[in-house]
Simulated assay, not measured.
Amino acid sequence: MTMDMDISVVIPLYNEAESLPELTAWIQRVMDDHRFSYEIILIDDGSIDGSWEVIEELKAVNARITGVKFRRNYGKSAALNVGFAAAQGNVVITMDADLQDSPDEIPELYRRVAMEGFDLVSGWKKQRHDPPSKTIPTKLFNSVTRGMSGIHNLHDFNCGLKAYKKDVVKNIEVYGEMHRYIPVIAKWAGFKRIDEQVVQHYPRKYGKTKFGPGRFIKGFLDLLSIFFVGKFGKRPMHFFGTMGVLSFLAGFIIAVWLIAEKLISIANQSPYRNVTDQPLFFLALVAIILGTQLFLTGFIAELVSRNSADRNNYQIEKVI
């Protein structure tokens, strides 16, 4: 395969044996019609339905297909990360294997990255063929993600159909459940030319969805992780230290105020309550202890950060 390849299509899959022949034939037809040089990377995430045997058959008739088989199910993020590492195309397209994403969208996605210079173009399934139990939580998470990430021009962070400049996929790491927040990861890595494109969403043709309601909890926790690591990963003391100092000062001020109130009452020979008899004293004590722990956490995290192997690993765009 030539190193100056136009497009790499990365497709993570789990138990999608029925859809793979139709999907790869559709992609091949689109690529041939537009005379793109391309590769299709199929990552089998531990399927148990014969998907790998189908991939082997497809590979035998199309040399542009590359198959990667996991020993067990690791998740979509792991599959994408491996696919990104293997991709050689100047533009990398990701899509799901269930035929709900249309390969006919590829030429326009490619044009917007290759010609218009976007770092990442994310699909937006404006008209969805999913039940309300899936669409309503998705809208909520997209709204929260827009607010926390500052990427206000994306409506659907979790759409599997995306186009990336090659530099993007080679400089980000995707793990856990973070595939749904790749635009956020890309932004924190310094790739800020991010836009969206309305794409067609087809009803699922074969099988059933592989994602349950638990993905929303995991996704929210991963969003917090991305936000924290992206903003404070190289300076954890700024977060924990600030929170610790504020908590300690709040507790200290309350304690001093309670003691001063008692001393003034004694001086004026007025009735008073013992400091330890007041609920505020225990709140102050908790705040002081919590503040100390947060400060020490920040101090330890700073030591770990300064001794990590990638402490001076920064994104460099150009050197002249």
Rank of each mutant, 00 (worst) to 15 (best):
L263D: 02
V275T: 04
G89T: 02
R204H: 03
G241D: 13
I151T: 06
I185H: 06
K69V: 04
L20R: 03
I48F: 13
L294N: 07
N171H: 09
K231Q: 11
L58I: 14
D6K: 11
W188K: 05
S265I: 00
A114E: 14
S51K: 06
M1H: 07
F141A: 04
Y74Q: 02
I194F: 07
A309K: 09
F70D: 03
S308Y: 01
K139H: 13
K76T: 14
I65K: 08
S47T: 09
D98R: 08
F211R: 00
L296I: 09
K166H: 14
L80C: 03
D277C: 01
N313Q: 09
L154P: 03
I185P: 01
Y206S: 04
E196M: 06
A25L: 13
N268E: 12
F141P: 01
S122N: 12
D156W: 01
K76Y: 09
L258V: 04
R72E: 14
R193Q: 04
V92Q: 04
G291K: 01
N62P: 00
S77Q: 08
Q200R: 04
Q127D: 13
V9P: 09
L13N: 06
V82D: 11
K125T: 11
T292M: 14
K162Q: 10
G176A: 07
G251T: 04
L140Q: 03
A114W: 10
T297L: 15
Y74C: 07
I253S: 00
T94V: 11
T209Y: 09
I289D: 03
P107D: 05
I182S: 02
N171T: 04
V184L: 02
P213N: 08
C159V: 05
G46S: 07
T2M: 09
E302D: 09
I320V: 07
V184S: 12
D44R: 11
F36S: 11
A17E: 09
Y314S: 05
F252P: 10
D98I: 12
K170H: 02
I106K: 02
E177N: 13
L249E: 00
G67W: 00
L221T: 10
N274E: 11
D119A: 05
G219M: 09
R72D: 13
N307M: 10
Y164H: 06
A255F: 10
G291H: 00
T242D: 03
